[in-house]
Design a protein around this nucleic acid. Structure first.
Lengths: 246, 246
DNA sequence: GTAATAGTGTCTCTTAGACACTATCTT
DNA sequence: AAGATAGTGTCTAAGAGACACTATTAC
């Protein structure tokens, strides 16, 4: 066909000329509680895959959503009550088989939130629950969510080696020992105390406050995050354990 | 509605219950020629944005394409004749405004190919042309392709600091000086010769061959890529220039 | 020989890891 | 005082940057 102008073309354009896949977003929301990395799952209240555990997510709404990120925020709020500040896109997964309703594409996001700060905030439009990552990966999750969860964790684990991202799991004031614990939980191995503290302090990602935390033994200096961007890149990566400790 | 089973639900499910966005893939294909980073553009032969330069790409075909990656490969082959081995997903961009036909999502991929090896292979289903990245970013590209191109280059540039990815731009045998030139072109600044060679050789990403290249002056040792995965991670990043040289 | 490009020797600098040490609190 | 947790001193190791040096070719 020939058109004399962009306007003429658009006037006749039928969106149904090209069938579109189903379009969803899914969120892997990580937190740390009880010394364990936790992931927020919802139990599906509708078909398909009714009553299976799944990552929170849902369909893009062409009316409501300005863009994909806005959709992710909206869905997260609807499904869990969480208004997360930081969502990072991990990847998009699309194929003919992942959803029984048809060719489907999902955009996967992840977020890190402080457990306590969001504990009240969580509401249950569907039944939601924090599950340790370990447990979650053993469950028979809906659709390909097992795979999505692995991808999201791989990203978190990797970025923990060279960014300050895990600080977004912390409350506003925290001790360096607490922060180190979070790093160790995500990485799955222990870190050297001196090296960890030096790295955090000398890079300027954290700064001392005038407060300290008294919780039993010797009081600990409280620090705060000192940058804008959790995606701060350290010049070197943390190494993997050299001998088999874990 | 209530359903007694997954089957019952799926039997009545209407895909049109939820309108889907337009779904496309776009590819940023980089190469190096004449000492410059080149990007492959096509000139659109149809509306919308007819005659604008754009990244090669197109609609996902739910019949033909098994998954998003397969779609990217198919579209690249159709539009340019290139059968690229390595495509990496960069990000997905979706919003209501990027395409005048309606709410649209694109999955952006990038690839690095050796200029000479693909020069014959390129066919012109639409008019395609290698353009230096610098020039391309000055053009008024179709849709939001200027932004997509910047995102793809940012990824390439960043990964060049800690992976062996640029080796995928090289022919099977290459000299270390040639490889260093490619790195410098992508990074936009010079690298220290000794440090560069040490890094490549001692990490084991390249290995000596028994051949050397005679091209005028002193012959140079030819190396080959020695690993499976261009995504090999060096333990440290290349630094940015310390003083203002460039 | 000179020019040009390939390649090396070796010093410094930065930052991670190791690990023993000191400090400050509760009981 | 003992126990526990916070925090430091200081050595080593790895790998990047700087830069002067040598090597091998064409002419």
């Amino acid at each position: 066909m020939n058109f004399s102008s962009e306007q003429a073309f658009l006037a006749q354009y039928q969106k149904s000329d090209y069938p579109s896949p189903l379009m969803t977003v899914d969120m892997a929301i990580f937190s740390v509680d009880q010394g364990q990395l936790q992931i927020l799952l919802i139990q599906r209240s509708n078909y398909p895959q009714k009553s299976y555990w799944a990552l929170p997510g849902g369909f893009v709404d062409l009316e409501q959503d300005q863009n994909l990120m806005a959709c992710a925020h909206r869905k997260l709020l609807e499904k869990t009550g969480i208004d997360s500040p930081y969502l990072e896109q991990v990847a998009s997964i699309g194929n003919a088989k992942r959803d029984p309703r048809g060719w489907s594409v999902t955009v996967l996001y992840f977020a890190l939130i402080n457990f306590k700060a969001y504990q009240q905030q969580i509401q249950h439009s569907e039944h939601s629950e924090w599950v340790t990552l370990e447990q979650a990966l053993k469950l028979d999750l809906a659709f390909d969510h097992h795979d999505l969860l692995q991808q999201a964790f791989a990203r978190l684990n990797n970025k923990t080696r060279y960014t300050a991202l895990p600080i977004s799991l912390m409350p506003p004031l925290f001790t360096l020992t607490e922060l180190q614990n979070i790093y160790e939980i995500i990485l799955g191995h222990n870190l050297e105390k001196k090296a960890f503290r030096r790295r955090m302090i000398e890079s300027g990602v954290v700064e001392e406050t005038d407060q300290s935390k008294i919780a039993g033994k010797r009081p600990a200096q409280l620090y705060r995050f000192a940058l804008q961007d959790y995606d701060f890149n350290f010049p070197r990566m943390l190494e993997y354990p050299r001998h088999h400790e874990d």
